[in-house]
Simulated assay, not measured.
Amino acid sequence: MKFVLAPDSFKGTMSAATAAATMSAGVRDVFPDAECIEVPMADGGEGTTQSLVDALGGKLLHADVADALGRTRTAHFGWIEAERLAVVEIAEAAGIEHLTTEELNPREANTAGVGQLLNHILELSPARLIVGLGGSATNDGGWGMARALGAVATTAAGKEIETRALALADAANLDTSGISERWQDVEITLACDVDNPLTGERGATAVFGPQKGVQPNEVEVFDAALAQWGKLLDSASGRAVSEIPGAGAAGGLGAAFMALLGAKPQRGVEVVIATVKLGEKIAGADFVFTGEGSMDFQTKFGKTPWGVMLEARAQGVPTIAFTGNLGRDVESLHENGFAAIIPTVRVVGTLKEALATAQPSLQDSVRMACRILAAARTRE
């Protein structure tokens, strides 16, 4: 029998690679001769870099960059030498996770660290770059990144503007000649699961600004600054990138990536599926096992198990998902393609206890599922 084990990480307990290996162990407890293909997965969010590095035999590299408030931090990115592929999550530099609630400051926060990280990546001469957009503490439209890459924005009087979000309101000209031409040889994919434009009612500021510290009475001011920046990006790229779905991702970083580096947005899990060639690995499989820490009705909105199931369903291969927390309205997941969704928590206890036993519990649950499959085979 052939099993493809393609889980996401179980947040706080197991990486995707560990979860896949644990699933394999559970399968072999029942089917010792089974072919087990381990494919660590992700959906473009936290953990994507590690999953792709694990799945493709790459390595993690690091560089010192500025965080959203300009403080030095060590950021990591993935490098898969065989494919000349770099993978980076912008949150490594400009992530909201690196700030306390009291430190949130959208007026000062910027994406310069993202640009610095990209400069380090360019030194490796990548052919491809996958960028995980999400988790930013910024609302600067990627201006900080643009400046770190070599772009210059000036006022109508020719004065360079500061690397602050609201300074964009005074930007009248954008010179991109300082951005390295080497970026033209890099295929950049944005793993992006939001379809918001740069500005407006569904824009970066209105939808995501409040969680980054933008006050209700400041939304229009920040949005106006991004609108002015959007005009310059549109002009620089020769197309209306500010209106493209995903332009508003990560505080407007999406728009800057598209306009200045020619990046193309794509749903995160689809990026990972294509990169690890999941479809090829599923070919000829008897079952696909997937899962993550928590699953509910929202899983079908682009989460890893859903993407894996759709890929398997296209080849007529049944998918069984395993999860630590089984949430609301999961019947809709069964109705749309999952053969089964199995909770892995084995005993009643505290959350701390459940997290501490997550790995053996996952192996036990996979083993039990395989025993059921084995019993069904004896009756065929």
Rank of each mutant, 00 (worst) to 15 (best):
M1N: 03
M1A: 14
K2Y: 08
F10M: 04
F10G: 02
A16R: 03
A17T: 05
T18S: 14
T18Q: 14
T18K: 12
D29R: 15
V30D: 14
P32A: 11
A34M: 11
G44A: 10
T48C: 10
G57D: 13
V65A: 07
A66Y: 10
G70T: 13
E83S: 11
R84Q: 12
L85S: 07
E92G: 07
A93P: 04
A94E: 02
R107L: 14
N110A: 08
G115A: 09
L124I: 11
R128V: 07
I130K: 12
G132R: 04
N139R: 01
G144E: 10
E160D: 12
R164F: 06
R164D: 13
L168G: 15
G178T: 00
Q215I: 02
P216V: 05
E220R: 09
E220F: 07
A224R: 13
G230W: 09
D234G: 06
A240V: 12
G246A: 03
L253Q: 11
M258A: 05
A263P: 01
G268F: 00
V271P: 05
E280S: 07
G291H: 03
F301G: 07
G302R: 00
G302T: 02
W306C: 15
Q315H: 07
F322M: 06
G324L: 01
V330F: 13
F338C: 11
Q363W: 02
V366A: 03
T378M: 13
T378R: 14
